[in-house]
Design a protein around this nucleic acid. Structure first.
Length: 511
RNA sequence: GGCCCGUUCGUCUAUCGGUUAGGACACCAGAUUUUCAUUCUGGUAAGAGGGGUUCGACUCCCCUACGGGCUACCA
């Protein structure tokens, strides 16, 4: 097997879509698996769609995800430059070669003339309206115009493109690692533009030239490229590179979760989940989009989830570390059909990864939230809180969101509990309990529990009857982590204070 | 419209001609728990339709339907 060299080649036209992230991931995993090279190439041949900041965004997104680049933009390497806009001269050279070998030709048709051609063909009932072997003879190009006129137009700087001269009726076959044999007749492929009138190459030319020159072994990209893959095969053939042609793997697309169609930002917004890896503000429209990172998704969890959208190892294990994924990943096990994006599964992964972390690390998340609230807290206490909260959180922010009561005494109480559980027995029990607590010297979850049971026998009220009310006096709410541990964490004095406050402020319902 | 690709529980998927069609998420029920959550146990739920091939098809072939992609001097 030849050296594995793969590339992720996004266009800097905006934020990196989560689907693009998965493409990058699969490329990366293949590279790691075979000790190969992961290359980042920026395909910025469309000047009109260029969005400032997009390239930096892509770099940062990949870095956050842990998809490290071995070679390419931001890293350098033996085949620099890796930004296509900086490789214009290289493409020109190969376009010229195709031209002189009669495999490509100049075309001078204006946009309007092209439109007229399509209209004409449409009206004539033709099934397709392409610039091709059947139509090129009636257009303005170097195949129909006398050589002198062509030369004149070129020297006068008349706008022109270079088109590929696709043969009339030829089966073009290619083997896709995911789909198997794919065969297309060349009559379905049009005379694609190779060089645009602004001197930039189109995707097709730039892609083939770069993949060849950069010695790419596997082209792993989205399914949207499958229809033009035969064209690329043709280009390799015309350029005499068929032997070095990379293997193709066209990935199924990510679909929206409800209904049909591919996943778009609109759908994600509607369903209330991110679609971009990290926060993004469109420089033109100023529209803001939240990222997975900022929404609290751990990159390992997101990657694990993403890897399983369209791929699986064939076993029943679903949690894999990044390193494990790289070990067992194979292109052969990628599915053929589009995968719907199910955010609930992503959240489940996040939960799994979060609770697997050591308390000390989780404490950092809580401490971060606390810092924003200007609340100071010793790391040991934060770790203790995280320890009893970790089974109930999905996102790092939940430690704070669901654990505010550790830091703020409740001022409002769940009205349902008040009306259902706050009665004379409750008051009697809690008064006795707080009295009894004052006498304890060593206060922790165990002694709190013992005290509770002791009081229960003294006042002859089963503790079960007042537990919810006790919870409410301490947290304000009806649910939460283990109460005894909660008391231990907030401390003896604060526990007593909260009970007293509730006793003074909640009125006993007169029945 | 034309061309290409696809179609197993609601979702992600396993199965590579012979299975009670398996797992996970979600959902429902029960158990545990001081509550909620967790955890555990159980449950609901699938081969798009129609033809072939075959002793036997989810699996192979054809047709239809549906879905997706492409059809730009965008990638």
């Amino acid at each position: 097997m030849r050296e594995v060299r793969v590339r992720f080649a996004p266009s800097p036209t905006g934020a990196l879509h989560i689907g693009g992230m998965r493409t990058a991931l699969y490329n990366y995993l293949l590279a790691r698996k075979h000790g190969g090279t992961m290359i980042l190439r920026i395909e910025d041949t469309d000047q009109n769609r260029y969005v400032p900041g997009a390239e930096e965004y892509i770099l940062e997104s990949l870095a956050w995800a842990g998809i490290t680049i071995d070679e390419g933009v931001g890293k350098g390497g033996p085949y620099s430059p890796y930004r296509q806009s900086e490789r214009k001269d290289i493409y020109k050279q190969y376009a010229q070669r195709l031209l002189t070998e009669g495999k490509a030709y100049y075309a001078f048709d204006t946009e309007q003339e092209l439109e007229e051609m399509r209209q004409r063909l449409k009206e004539a009932g033709s099934s397709d309206q392409q610039y091709s072997s059947t139509t090129r003879s009636s257009m303005k190009n170097s195949l129909t115009l006398p050589e002198s006129e062509v030369n004149q137009k070129i020297t006068q700087g008349e706008p022109h493109v270079i088109r590929l001269k696709v043969p009339a009726n030829e089966e073009i076959k290619l083997t896709d690692l995911i789909r198997g044999e794919v065969s297309v007749n060349s009559s379905q492929v049009d005379d694609k533009v190779l060089m645009k009138s602004d001197g930039m190459p189109t995707y097709h030319l730039a892609n083939v030239v770069d993949d060849y020159l950069m010695k790419i072994s596997h082209v792993i990209r989205g399914e949207e490229w499958l229809p033009s893959a035969p064209l690329h095969v043709l280009l390799y053939r015309f350029l005499g590179w068929e032997k070095e042609m990379p293997q193709f793997a066209h990935l199924p697309l990510l679909l929206k979760a409800d209904g049909n169609g591919k996943l778009s930002k609109r759908d994600a917004d509607k369903a209330g989940f991110p679609i971009f890896p990290i926060n993004w503000t469109d420089p033109k429209t100023k529209e803001f989009s939240a990222g997975f990172r900022e929404n609290g998704y751990l990159h390992e969890a997101l990657l694990n989830f993403l890897a399983f959208l369209g791929w699986n190892p064939g076993t029943e294990q679903e949690i894999f570390s990044f390193a494990e994924l790289a070990e067992i990943f194979t292109l052969e096990r990628i599915g053929k059909s589009g995968a719907k994006f199910d955010i609930q599964k992503a959240q489940w992964y996040n939960q799994q990864y979060l609770r697997a972390k050591p308390d000390e690390e989780l404490a950092k998340y809580l401490l971060t939230s606390l810092a924003k609230e200007s609340i100071s807290c010793p790391p040991e206490k934060a770790a203790k809180i995280c320890a009893i909260m970790k089974e109930r959180v999905t996102f790092p922010k939940d430690f704070w969101e669901q654990g505010k009561f550790f830091f703020h005494s409740p001022t409002e109480y769940d009205p349902q509990i008040v009306s259902k559980k706050w009665n004379e027995d409750t008051v009697r029990f809690l008064s006795a309990f707080s009295q009894e607590l004052k006498l304890i010297s060593l206060f922790n979850s165990e002694s709190a529990k013992l005290t509770l049971e002791k009081v229960a026998t003294i006042v002859t009220i089963p503790s079960g009857k007042i537990m919810q009310a006790l919870r409410m006096t301490l947290t304000g709410g009806a649910s939460g982590p283990d109460l005894m541990t909660t008391m231990e964490i907030i401390g003896k004095d604060e526990t007593i204070r909260r009970i007293s406050f509730a006793l003074e402020n909640i009125k006993v319902k007169v029945s």
